[in-house]
Design a binder for these strands. Structure first.
Length: 213
DNA sequence: CCATAGATGCACT
DNA sequence: GTGCATCTATGGC
């Protein structure tokens, strides 16, 4: 188990995102800790990316995105949900990786208590579900996930083989919906099912079924 | 199985 | 005032 160094996040989100697949995110609180193995992420570039919160420049909400890499950017959306990003690129520029889904690999009891009645597979299946399972809210905005002793910790795992990494359009983004900057692990049951931009088909082609896993 | 509506607070224009 | 980087319940098949 190797901690992820801050300099890893100094690259832009497009390079960081696929490498995060399979890595671990742990959040520690007084009630215990929950660890999630990442199975689905999305890259958001900065002021050049119409889908990014940073597209129109720095605001109070997105200020953390312009800060040092390795911190978490947490935002509130749809009146009830929190989503969590890892800030990438050097300080002064904004890019980030949205953590969309994962598998709870430790702290299962605590994660279940945070989402009662939910099947284990669905505990962190989706960006807002993932933050609930981990116990993340707006108070965590700006927390340094690369600092020793932080309540948030990241760990490298062996890279997922390239042929097991799928990519496709981002979810829920109306601007720049065409770029394939969402990455997930093929065949993972914990990948989020909510994908309004992907039309269902009666008979998916073999090629498509294969590329999606 | 699939599709749709409603909830709900806040950042931003 | 508008529109979300969403999820769940509910209804139809």
């Amino acid at each position: 188990m190797t901690p992820i160094p801050r300099e890893f996040f100094a690259a832009d989100a497009l390079a960081v995102a696929p490498r995060l697949l399979g890595c671990l995110v742990r959040h520690r609180t007084t009630s215990g800790s929950v660890t999630v193995r990442l199975t689905e992420v999305e890259a958001y570039l900065g002021e050049c990316d119409p889908g990014s919160h940073a597209y129109r420049g720095r605001t109070p909400r997105n200020a953390v995105m312009f800060g040092p890499p390795g911190h978490v950017y947490v935002y509130f959306t749809y009146g009830m949900h929190y989503c969590m990003n890892l800030v990438c690129s050097p300080e002064g520029t904004a890019s980030a990786v949205l953590l969309r889904a994962g598998e709870v690999v430790a702290g299962l009891t605590l994660a279940r208590s945070r989402r009662p009645g939910i099947p284990d597979r669905d505990l962190a299946r989706g960006p807002a579900r993932l933050t609930v399972a981990l116990g993340i809210d707006k108070t965590h905005n700006g927390v340094d996930a690369c600092a020793p002793g932080s309540c948030l910790a990241l760990e490298f795992r062996d890279p997922i083989p390239e042929e097991m990494i799928c990519c496709g359009p981002r979810v829920g983004v109306t601007a720049a919906a065409d770029v394939p900057w969402r990455f997930w692990i093929r065949g993972e049951p914990t990948v989020s099912a909510y994908r309004p931009h992907v039309r269902r088909r009666r008979a998916p082609s073999r090629a498509e079924a294969g590329s999606r896993g």
